[in-house]
Design a protein around this nucleic acid. Structure first.
Length: 171
DNA sequence: CCCTAGCGGTGCT
DNA sequence: AGCACCGCTAGGG
């Protein structure tokens, strides 16, 4: 079978910077935080992009804006997270069940997927989450009031939690 | 605050 | 099979 027949990279402009969204033919496959200062100007949605992907991208852009504003996300694009292991899939699915404005500890997420001693592995799986923000790994914190880690940088995690009103450890 | 030991999943050799 | 990573936790200075 053909490997990844289609792959499209589109940008999401926000006041906080430019996010990068990657799509397969099945849906949103990755979302990357803004990198260093605005480098080259980026691919805009051009004629090579299927209508379906454009539709998904609109949903992505809207969802990103809402999460950054700490507001409820109404609609999500389909997610293509099929690359993960069974354990990772279980963790990512559990993340989507953490309500906005609330947090769960790594330990609680581990328990929720039936692996109560795998808190550390949960952290690793969170770090491997290809679609941060929309799959809210920022809502997972350490036992005992610590923030835990965040692949996109702890500043982001802190900001996201503050904006959605989660009584963050340090807030 | 620090340090240490124990833990489980993943990826590389 | 072994081993060295890790967004962790619990316990003890």
């Amino acid at each position: 079978m053909r490997t990844h027949a289609g792959r499209f990279t589109l940008m999401v402009e926000t006041r906080e910077g430019r996010f990068t969204a990657i799509y397969s033919e099945r849906g949103l496959r990755g979302l990357a935080f803004p990198e260093g200062k605005g480098r080259r100007s980026e691919a805009r949605v051009g004629p090579g992009v299927p209508r379906e992907v454009r539709t998904w991208h609109k949903l992505t852009a809207k969802a990103v804006a809402l999460v950054l504003a700490g507001r409820a996300v109404r609609a999500m694009p389909p997610l293509d997270m099929g690359e993960g292991t069974a354990f990772q899939q279980a963790v990512w699915a559990a993340l989507t069940r953490i309500p906005r404005g609330r947090t769960a500890t790594y330990r609680e997420v581990a328990a929720a997927i039936g692996r109560p001693r795998s808190a550390r592995a949960v952290g690793q799986a969170c770090g491997a989450n290809p679609v941060p923000l929309l799959v809210p790994c920022h809502r997972v914190v350490a036992t005992g009031g610590g923030l835990g880690g965040f692949s996109g940088g702890l500043r982001w995690k802190q900001m996201l939690l503050a904006r959605e009103g989660a009584g963050g450890p340090a807030s």
